[in-house]
Design a binder for these strands. Structure first.
Lengths: 178, 178
DNA sequence: AGGTGCATGTAACAGGTTACATGATTAA
DNA sequence: TTAATCATGTAACCTGTTACATGCACCT
């Protein structure tokens, strides 16, 4: 079984601090899910595999009667993480953006086009707000998490600007026609 | 069977002109695959389903002995496409970006960080070059395809700018330390 | 004669989500 | 006492890719 994205997400997060599967899911949802999501259905089975491979070590840390298994990175796990970090195979980069799809096909219904762009802008504005909120909690500026946040915010802002400019331009064209 | 992304991609492309499955794949790869990819394994079965539902109509147009089935949009298909274009359900927007993942976890190996950003920039520069090449072929500017190209180019440029600025900033910090 | 492109199709696989089952703890 | 949260796990499902099989047409 070769490593997949969720492998690196788990090893990377456990390099920050030991965590349970539940903690991992929560942390993923607050952080990397903006550019790489993960579900319980991936996390729990992967934790078992990684422990079998000796890349992480789990110990039981129950809260009263409630079971809880906390995992930490082993030396082998850290080596694997560093190996990935220094590898230079082509980076996976996939996008599924329904707004772009609608915009692409908007010639089939041109009077709807501005509405499509508006919807993209609004959804990006919501995303930007989330990222800004996350950044207000962050302290230091030169850490990995802070840099990805910053890049995410910059991208959203540039996207929103394009939308505003284009909405404006299209509105003017409409008015000219009258 | 309810519509999926590939449904809209096919209906949208057939609204532009009648095409075979092979044409569709080629067109997808030249255009929307930047924000929504599709494979033969999705296209051919979906064409059958759409014909069964009466949203598209296929006719045989062989080239000599070589079979070829060309599909065109029916009225029902156009209505379905317009329905999607005007619907305002939450837009699907998913990203899988391994470069961002590496940057997020770069605290585990800080001396590698600049290299990670460089790799992201180079891969984005390649993407930008592709988009620019596509735009040089495009004529009109106010069509859906042209707008998505323009937005894609703008996004790449903003991304690259961020990388350059950050690489610069990190290099300076490095030098200060000496 | 052979390589490339046109053309259709699918089986096997990989990756990922959803929904549920189960049960303890904590705060209102 | 009840709702929310903590906590683990998986079966069923859906989506999408890869790789292959098959064969014609066209150019050199």
């Amino acid at each position: 079984m070769q490593p997949t994205a969720v492998t690196w997400a788990i090893l990377g997060l456990l390099a920050q601090r030991p965590m349970s599967g539940y903690d991992l899911k929560r942390t993923v949802d607050r952080t990397i899910r903006h550019f790489w999501a993960a579900s319980y259905g991936q996390i729990y089975p992967e934790l078992k595999r990684l422990e079998d491979q000796g890349l992480i070590a789990g110990r039981s840390e129950p809260t009263g009667e409630r079971q809880r298994r906390v995992y930490e990175l082993t030396e082998g796990g850290r080596a694997a993480l560093e190996g990935w970090l220094t590898s230079d195979v082509e980076l996976v980069d996939e996008l599924r953006d329904e707004g772009m799809l609608k915009l692409f096909f908007s010639d089939a219904l041109p009077e709807q086009r501005i509405e499509n762009i508006r919807a993209m802008r609004l959804s990006t504005e919501r995303k930007l707000e989330q990222l800004n909120q996350l950044r207000s909690h962050a302290q230091e500026m030169r850490t990995g998490p802070a840099l990805t946040l910053d890049l995410g915010i910059t991208s959203c802002q540039s996207f929103i600007k394009w939308c505003e400019a284009t909405e404006h331009r299209l509105t003017e064209t409409e008015t000219e026609k009258e």
